[in-house]
Every structure is written in C-alpha cells, then in structure tokens.
C-alpha cells in the first residue's frame, strides 16, 4: 500500500511533466494538423536554457536559490518561446500549402539540427546539477517503508495546476484564444473574417514552447541531469500522451500525460523497468483500437 502511494506520487509528477510537453503537440496539431517533431527538442533546449539561466542568476545575484529559480523560470520561458517561434517561422511557415509530408520531414530535419546544435555547443556529456530542493514531508509510514512527498514534487504539481488554469483561461476567455479556436475549426474562414492566422499559428507555437520550457526546467531540477538527447524520448512519450488523450484536446493532453506517467511509474515499480516503454505503447494501441480518437477526442463522423 505504501509502495503503491509512493509510485502514485512519482507517476503523477512525471505525468505532469509529460502533460506540459503534450499540450504543445496537441495545440499545434489541432491548428495546422502537423506533428511538430521538433517539439521534444524545444523542451530539451528549455532544459539547457534553464540550467544556464539559473547558473547565471546565482552567479550574478548572490546565493538565493529561490531568486535564481524565479529568474531562470522567466528567462527560460521567454528564450525558449523565441526558439519555438523561430523554428516555425523558418521551417514550417513556408510549407503551409505544401504536400502533407513536407512539413513533417522539415520538422524531423529541424529536430536533428537542434539536437546536434546542442551537442556541439554544450558538449555531449551529461550535465549534473546538485539537488537544490532538499527534503519533503513524510506522508505515512508502515511496513518499514515511508511515503515521501518532496517539496520539489509539490512545486512541480502546483506549478502545473497553475499553468493549466492560466492556459484554460487564455483559450476560453481571451480574444487570442477565441481566434485560436476559430483558426482550429476552419483556417480559411477565420482568415476571411479578419483573423491573422499566421500570427495565431505563431502564438500557438510560442505557447507550446513556453510550456515545454517549464517542463524542461522541472526535469532539470527533478532528475538533476540533462543531456542533448533527452528531447527525443520525452517528445515521443508526450506525443503519445497527446494521442492517447485525444489529439487536439487540451484536457486530453494533460490526462494522457498523467496516464503515461502513472503507467511508467507502476510498470517500473511492479514489473520491469526495461519494458516500461513497451507498456506505454501497448496501452496506446489498445486505447486506439477501442477509441480511435483517443480518450477525450471528439468522435468524428466521416464526412462523405
């Protein structure tokens, strides 16, 4: 029981991170029907930038960890968003009316470029960061096993909830969100009605990258090690999460992320850590067989 709860906490933490990345995939897919393959790399850049920004902030601003983190969070969000914007502007926008596979190949190319760029500019070795948040609270204790909720896990979950609330508000209540939803429904019509769709698409990429940046910062703090290769697997998992939850749906992406985090945690906890990725994909296939549009995706009637 204690072990179960511990895995639940670990799974939710991991799932929150996947969910934040998955939102970037789902938003971009919803609006331009494209798998933004480079999104995992944007998250990886976010992790690097956050680490660099944190070190710069603590070097310049003294030893306050909290202050350093706040600076790191804000600057990472801004700079990573700029990367997300630049990738769309350079590699995807010129292909807006191209055959369907062209942007996908361009995205895969961009993903390779960003990965190797990071490797070349920051070196291939794993970058370790000593844990900043120590301690936590002990929730329960029994059978010689104590269930811990670390302060860091609390921060990650709280931050995720806050970000989700802000994003839901932006999408449902602001004029930007309204324009975004209109573009998602029918890009041509939205453009005819005076929505600057290019700008909306840029905004979508910026929002997705911002969330991925936060996920990058969280991972840096949570695992304490990052390298140039972390974007690939996290990207695949997050995309799987988006599909699992129903691609195009924001709550679906978060739900999918949490589910995948939980599956991974429980599978590694109870079965084997080696086959956790197999379990994730097997469950994806199972879900798609019974609900072809994902858990929260709208079932679509084929237009004939």
């Amino acid at each position: 029981m204690e072990y179960f709860i511990q895995q639940l906490i670990n799974g939710l933490t991991l799932g929150a991170i996947y969910g934040l990345i998955a939102i970037g995939y789902t938003m971009v897919y919803g609006i331009i029907r494209m798998i933004n393959f480079a999104h995992g790399e944007i998250y990886m850049l976010g992790a690097f930038i956050s680490l660099i920004a944190f070190l710069v902030a603590t070097t310049l601003g003294g030893a306050s960890v909290a202050f350093g983190l706040l600076i790191a969070l804000v600057s990472t969000m801004i700079l990573t968003a700029l990367w997300g914007w630049a990738v769309e502007r350079l590699a995807y926008r010129p292909l807006r009316n191209a055959p369907k596979l062209a942007p996908l190949i361009s995205a895969i190319g961009m993903s390779i470029v960003l990965q190797n760029f990071s490797q070349l500019s920051q070196g291939a070795r794993v970058k370790p960061l000593p844990p900043l948040f120590k301690g936590g609270i002990e929730l329960m204790h029994g059978n010689g096993f104590s269930v811990n909720l670390s302060y860091l896990q609390m921060v990650i979950m709280a931050l995720t909830v806050v970000l989700m609330a802000v994003f839901t508000w932006v999408i449902t209540r602001t004029s930007l969100g309204r324009a975004q939803r209109a573009t998602e429904q029918d890009m041509k019509m939205a453009a005819l009605l005076g929505v600057n769709t290019d700008r909306i698409i840029s905004a979508t990429f910026i929002m997705g990258a911002t969330l991925a940046a936060v996920a990058g910062l969280m991972v840096t703090l949570y695992y304490g090690v990052i390298d140039f290769y972390i974007g690939f697997l996290a990207g695949i998992k997050a995309f799987t999460a988006a599909v699992l939850g129903g691609i195009g749906s924001l709550p679906g992406a978060m739900l999918g992320g949490l589910l995948i985090g939980l599956i991974e945690a429980f599978w590694s906890g109870y079965f084997s850590i080696e086959y956790k990725d197999v379990a994730v994909f097997a469950i994806l296939v199972l879900v798609l067989l019974f609900r072809p549009t994902g858990l929260l995706g709208r079932p679509e009637v084929e237009k004939i």
């Binding site: 350079l90 590699a91 292909l95 942007p103 361009s106 190319g109 961009m110 960003l114 070349l120």
Partner: peptide, 18 residues
C-alpha cells in the same frame, strides 16, 4: 555531419516541397 544532414532535410523541403 548530422547537423548538415538535418539542415539539408529542411532546406531541400523548403526548396522542393513535393
């Protein structure tokens, strides 16, 4: 090499999308 490889993928697609 890989940097150039990825870059080439992007550039060729931009140049000849089909």
């Amino acid at each position: 090499r890989m940097l150039a490889f990825g870059g080439a993928m992007v550039l060729i697609m931009l140049w000849k999308p089909s």
